[in-house]
Structure formats: structure tokens, C-alpha cells
Amino acid sequence: MKPAAFEYRRVTTVAEAVKLLRETPDAKIIAGGQSLVPLMNFRLTRPSLLVDVNGVKALQHVGWDGAYLRIGSLVRHQQIADHAEIQKHFPVLTVAAKHIGHWAIRNRGTIGGSLAHADPASEWSAATVTLQAEIDVEGPQGIHMVPASEFFLGYYSTVVQPDELIVAVRIPYPKFRIGFAEMARRRGDFALAGAYVEDAGNGEGFVTWFGVADKPVRVPTLLPDNMETRREAWQQALETLAIADDSKPRLHLAVQMAERAWQHSRFDGARYLSEEAGGNQPL
């Protein structure tokens, strides 16, 4: 299991990266490499050129951009998990970050890499869709903003063109209470099913599943107080999706994760980050 040969270029600006991508059609960006390198080791992908963006300072920051939280594409999962500002204003991202892979993976893997890879079970993909984030993509024509809802096309597929790269994610301040839950066989595994649920407080809200369909979709749903009717609402919401595995256990899990996420959305402050809600994972 050794990767096929490639050429390697390290860049310090996005413009340089775009130029190289344009010149070499099968070039690929490498950031954290935690999804890309396994694929290369298995020789499932074999770019002729790797453009290393780890030295691009402009992609490394988390900060406010007006009403938006801007997370540079090169920000590592663990940085997000540890970020005090994120924990304060977007605790759901803190909780989600801690569910990604293992510590060593989180130390290197980046949010931009996750979005570009577009695994349907990715915590970040679904988070951006839930939070109605905008994803900044830069190419030869400059930067354009893609709403997360239009960003993912399906399995491992996004609107990013071969000569473009993700530079940042911009997340508006959440309008609703949001809960997160996922079920994986072991710590660090991709979820068999996971969900973000937004509760608008008026008996309605949204659910965004991951690991269930070919991409995350934010589905409006009723949120009745009664558990049985709520379960029916989850099932109705599910039916609107292109379900990947419609076996009974998977549908059961999808419903349960939505329910669990909704329950977590009702937690406040410290309880939100507690073990109960899955947020008190150390590290």
C-alpha cells in the first residue's frame, strides 16, 4: 500500500495554488491529508501533482466577519474543538468536532478538507447545511460564495471545480436552538447515522441528517411535544430523502438520532457540553 508517484509543490498563497491547479488538471490540494492520503495509499486516487496549502496563512484563522463566524479552510478539527469563542457561540460545533476521528486525526485534518471530501457521514458537511453556512471557494475568477445547501452534490461530490479550492466557511449566528447526536460503532468511526436538529420554539424546526442519504439535506419538520407524533414527524421528514440504506435498523437509527439531537437541543450552557449530550469528550 504505497501511493503512486506525484510531483509536489508547496504554496504560500491561494493564487499560487489556483494557478497550479489550472495548469495541471489532475492536480489535487493537500491540506490535512487525513482523507486524501489513505485514498492515495490504496491507489484509489493518483494525482500527478499535490499542491500543499499548509503554508497558506490566510486559510488558518477563525474570526468574526460581521455577523458571520469565519473559519479558514485550513483550521484543524482539534482547533475548532478547543476554540473558546466557538464553544461560547456555537457549542454545537464544539460537540461535533469532538466526534471526528481520533485525536491524532483531529490534530491534522481540516474543516476544508472534510467539506471537499464530502463524505455523506461527515459531521462538518451536515453542520454547514444545518447552520446555513456559506462556503467560500476560490478559483481563477476569484472567490465565490456557495450556500452549503447547494455545495454538496452527492457521494464525495461537490460543486468545487478542479481548479478551485475552499478558502473558508462563513457561519451566520444560529437562529434556533440546535442539538447534535450521532451513532458510531466505536469512538472515532464514521457515524452509521447522525443528525442536527433545530428547534424554532413554535413546534416547528429542521432536521439535517448525515450518514443517511448521499448528502446532508436540511428538512423542515414539525416538532410536536408528544413523542409518538414527533417520531412520525421524523419518519415523514426521512421520506423526503434519497436514503442510502433503507434497511429497518438504519431507518430506526436515523429516527432515534433525530430524537436524541432534539433532546440535546433543549439543553443549556454547561449541560449542552456535558457527557449526556456527547460534548464532554475530553481533548
Binding site: Y8, I30, V37, L50, R108
Partner: peptide, 11 residues
């Protein structure tokens, strides 16, 4: 801690 099998030495 990081994985040395998921990093190219050149990086």
C-alpha cells in the same frame, strides 16, 4: 500526536 503514515515526509 499525528499519523506518520498519513503525512508525506516532504510536508
Amino acid at each position: 500526536p499525528e499519523r506518520s503514515c498519513l503525512t508525506f515526509a516532504i510536508q
